[in-house]
Measured scan of single mutants.
Amino acid sequence: MQRVNMIMAESPGLITICLLGYLLSAECTVFLDHENANKILNRPKRYNSGKLEEFVQGNLERECMEEKCSFEEAREVFENTERTTEFWKQYVDGDQCESNPCLNGGSCKDDINSYECWCPFGFEGKNCELDVTCNIKNGRCEQFCKNSADNKVVCSCTEGYRLAENQKSCEPAVPFPCGRVSVSQTSKLTRAETVFPDVDYVNSTEAETILDNITQSTQSFNDFTRVVGGEDAKPGQFPWQVVLNGKVDAFCGGSIVNEKWIVTAAHCVETGVKITVVAGEHNIEETEHTEQKRNVIRIIPHHNYNAAINKYNHDIALLELDEPLVLNSYVTPICIADKEYTNIFLKFGSGYVSGWGRVFHKGRSALVLQYLRVPLVDRATCLRSTKFTIYNNMFCAGFHEGGRDSCQGDSGGPHVTEVEGTSFLTGIISWGEECAMKGKYGIYTKVSRYVNWIKEKTKLT
């Protein structure tokens, strides 16, 4: 034993070699072989497995989906700052455009905790909710729209109204504003409101030439003092309507412009014939205590009207009353817009006519005020429907199939267009061939041609 100890002390290297040989010859039971080890760690190889990531292109799944990435790591994937920024906006807080917040056709661009709407022409605001041009839906104005110097929408209202708090709607500024039905039992019968379409306001006024200088022999019209197929109006439903009495009662109609003036057809009036105007009328054979009678003290036909040349060209006249009318729910003026808007309103496509005229061709006159909704007829169809001249200051309205029309005794009465609950004068009943005849239409004086003249002559002093 002493000898062994001496050998170990003198030859430590020998001992180490012996131990190493023993270990190498022993069977290893701690580690699995290569094949079995792979069965336990069965993990798919990654895209760049075996390579240094710093030297390969980034992978979106590896960089940002398996674990949260930084902007720089995302930049490695896209290799483009702009594309990385677009991805980053949604990656950080989701897609803010998912709810489609942009209105009126706006395009949404996502941002971090926010979004941006790219608005089409005519709109602005956070969600493109603000109209900035009158060309689109009248700028959301209830009545009139004008573009300011910086191309912003400025709404306005006709006389007797003021802008509401929203700067879009119009509200009454006087007790009985024009064009409004205020009798409670008839307010439910107000005709369907007309909503502004998209309009090209630059070209809204037709490029028409008034044929002022045409000389033409007097034409022989049949029954051209021209509501057939209409309905009984309720008291106060058309408070701007008046009836004219002269040699015979209810020979023509008219509309209240203001307390002192009536507008009617020029062919209705004769110099030297006494005319009485009755406002607030409903049943011409009954006294309903809503009527107001006034005498006409002055007749002003349009300066281009000449019955000797043509009885229905420039067929418009103004009547001055001896005493002002007292405005109330049964006696209310009709609204008159400017030339541009009167023309736009007419193009809405349908209007209402009213009167006490004959209820059928050569038949009896109506006792109760009649009204009828009539569609506008395109000019080409209008011209083809008659052998008589249709001037540019006239328009056609009615039904091709016949059966409904204005008729004798309705002449001078109103053709009105309702705009968001307020009625505007767009025409004056003038003439036609018979009444409600198939293929024939009622012919009306186009008020847009005469609004400046009306307003100039009827100013209240």
Rank of each mutant, 00 (worst) to 15 (best):
M8L: 12
S11N: 13
P12S: 14
T16V: 09
I17H: 04
L20T: 04
L20K: 02
G21N: 12
L23W: 13
L23T: 05
E27F: 04
E27M: 05
T29W: 06
F31G: 06
E35W: 07
N36G: 14
K39S: 10
R43Q: 02
K45F: 01
R46I: 01
L52D: 09
E54S: 01
E54K: 01
F55I: 07
F55K: 09
V56I: 12
L60P: 03
E61A: 04
E67K: 01
K68I: 07
K68E: 04
S70T: 13
S70W: 01
F71A: 03
F78C: 03
N80L: 04
R83S: 13
E86N: 10
F87V: 03
K89L: 08
D93N: 14
D95H: 14
C97I: 03
S99W: 07
S99G: 12
C102I: 01
C108K: 03
W118Q: 14
F121C: 06
G122F: 04
N127I: 09
C128T: 03
E129L: 03
L130F: 10
L130S: 12
T133R: 08
K137L: 13
K137T: 14
N138G: 06
C141A: 00
C141D: 00
Q143M: 11
F144M: 06
C145F: 02
C145L: 02
C145Y: 02
A149L: 10
N151K: 12
N151G: 11
K152G: 13
K152R: 15
V154L: 13
C155S: 00
C157E: 01
C157Q: 00
T158F: 04
E159M: 08
R162K: 09
L163H: 02
N166H: 03
N166L: 02
Q167E: 08
Q167W: 08
Q167V: 05
K168H: 13
K168R: 09
S169N: 11
A173Q: 09
V174Q: 09
P175R: 12
P177D: 01
R180I: 04
Q185Y: 12
S187D: 14
R191I: 14
R191D: 11
V195P: 11
F196I: 13
F196E: 14
D198T: 14
D200T: 07
N203V: 07
A207I: 11
I210T: 15
N213M: 09
N213F: 06
T215V: 08
T215R: 07
T218D: 07
T218Q: 08
T225M: 08
R226C: 06
G229E: 15
E231P: 10
D232I: 15
K234F: 12
Q241W: 07
N245F: 06
G246A: 09
K247Y: 06
D249L: 07
G254H: 00
A265G: 05
A266P: 01
H267V: 02
G272T: 10
V273E: 15
V278P: 00
A279I: 00
G280K: 02
N283A: 07
N283L: 10
I284L: 15
H289L: 07
H289A: 07
I297Q: 07
I299H: 07
I300R: 03
H302Y: 07
H302K: 02
Y305T: 02
N306W: 04
N306T: 04
N306H: 09
N306F: 05
A308W: 06
I309T: 07
N310D: 10
K311F: 05
N313W: 08
I316T: 00
A317S: 04
L319E: 01
L319D: 00
D322F: 02
D322K: 04
P324M: 05
Y330N: 05
V331E: 00
I334L: 06
D338L: 04
E340V: 10
T342G: 05
T342K: 01
T342I: 03
F345R: 01
L346T: 07
K347P: 01
K347E: 08
F348G: 12
Y352R: 06
V353W: 03
S354A: 15
W356T: 05
V359Y: 11
V359A: 15
V359R: 13
H361F: 08
S365E: 15
V368M: 12
V368E: 09
Y371I: 12
A380L: 08
C382Y: 02
C382S: 02
L383A: 15
R384Q: 15
T386M: 13
T386N: 11
K387A: 10
K387Q: 13
Y391S: 15
Y391W: 09
F395Y: 03
F395N: 01
F395C: 02
A397L: 01
H400R: 12
E401L: 10
G403I: 15
D410W: 15
T417I: 05
E420Y: 11
E420Q: 09
E420T: 09
G421C: 03
G421Y: 04
T422E: 01
G427T: 02
G427A: 02
I429N: 15
W431H: 11
K438R: 11
I443V: 09
T445V: 10
K446R: 12
S448F: 02
R449Q: 15
Y450P: 01
N452D: 15
K455S: 06
T458W: 00
T461W: 07
T461D: 15
